[in-house]
Design a protein around this nucleic acid. Structure first.
Lengths: 212, 212
DNA sequence: CCAGGTTATGACACTCCATGCCAAAAAGAT
DNA sequence: ATCTTTTTGGCATGGAGTGTCATAACCTGG
């Protein structure tokens, strides 16, 4: 678990469409992105539970065994972009001015992390909808969220007003609560911008940690 | 899903140990409590993933098929008490004074809901530990939490300062964030009282909804 | 005591998710 | 052409969860 192959641009093994590698050995038959795109398409069309892994692999043209080499679970296809988003989030947090209150840094970082191309935006909306409607994917989602939670908590400890470890735990949970609340409002009010919603919601939930 | 038989004291079908019913038909071979107690014991001893449903049913002396008549999923045994806790929560919310700020009502209600006998307290601690350490149970947990979230959100809409529907969503998420944060601190600081932790944490995360 | 109705149980078969194992395919390197 | 490297697909396996059906165990009425 948590051991997805996750062949990414970074290891230079494949292009997005799985052609032409200069590496030794058999080339990859496909890419995580391709599998994930097809899987999410089917999930949206037929529902998560009603879509079997066999459906996905048949549509992509690979074996089930190969699917589970790319993803450690059926629902993991929803989080292909998650590592990149989290990396953007962490990078933005690292760039914070040492005097900046932690709340501002968290908001700025999450806005940076959740900046997509228009095509990816629709994809993110579908994902958000699926997470809300399919309890079966919450298990994987929770481990994603725990990483965001840890990053937010650590940021609250470093930035003013330097939270204690105990308070930082609370900040972490409050932060993901803000993410989830903004997410839900984003799904139910599609006309509103996610960034605006995040700013609104985080201002409400992030505790005003008292300085020592 | 969500269709557990849930034979409870309320429908007068069985006693806790499965003896003596005045109802027609074959008596129940066991009770949800008995199954859940054995299952949770095994989960704590060997871990959730390493414990199969077959292990549980063999220990209780029932068939696997019967297990899944009592519980709709392996992890559901952790939430036998959940319906009762939620009922206490809702009852306490209903009893709120119309002029009482919503934050106070939520705190009072959650303290009422999470009041156990000493024996049940250890059981609740084990459950809390399992939820934190086993992502596999988060799926079921999330549907439990969504009920608490809805109840808290509705309370925020009714009590002063009467939140809008959009803000109530945020209150709901902030509330469960408080539950989770208090839960985590309860597990990592066993000497502290859960009630005190809840009071502390909820005071930090519950937004001060501005009156219109 | 015995038949009939009622309800839960257990056994079986089945699908799906997930993993371990291994032979074979497809590339580069020598 | 052969060797090495790496991925793939097939096969077997185990656990979760569901539908189906005969049967066990109880209560009620004769």
């Amino acid at each position: 678990m948590g051991d997805t192959v996750c062949v990414d641009e970074a290891d230079g093994a494949t292009t997005g469409d799985g052609r032409a590698v200069d590496r030794a050995g058999r080339p990859l038959a496909t890419s995580p992105r391709v599998i994930a795109a097809m899987a999410q398409k089917l999930f949206v069309e037929k529902g998560f539970a009603a879509t079997s892994v066999a459906d996905v692999t048949a549509a992509v043209g690979i074996s089930q065994r190969t699917f589970f080499r790319y993803f450690s679970a059926k629902g993991d296809v929803l989080w292909v972009e998650s590592a990149a988003e989290l990396a953007r989030f962490r990078a933005a947090l690292s760039a914070a001015d040492p005097d900046e209150p932690y709340q501002q840094g968290l908001l700025r970082a999450v806005l940076a992390a959740f900046t997509w191309t228009p095509a990816d935006e629709q994809w993110a909306r579908d994902r958000a909808q699926l997470v809300l409607s399919e309890p079966a994917v919450q298990g994987q989602f929770s481990v994603i969220l725990s990483q965001w939670r840890a990053a937010a908590a650590e940021h609250a400890r470093r930035q003013p007003p330097a939270a204690t470890a105990e308070v930082a735990v609370v900040v972490g949970y409050a932060f993901v609560a803000g993410l989830l609340a903004a997410n839900e409002r984003w799904v139910s009010e599609p006309s509103r911008d996610l960034g605006t919603l995040l700013a609104e919601v985080l201002a409400m939930v992030l505790p005003a940690v008292s300085a020592p």
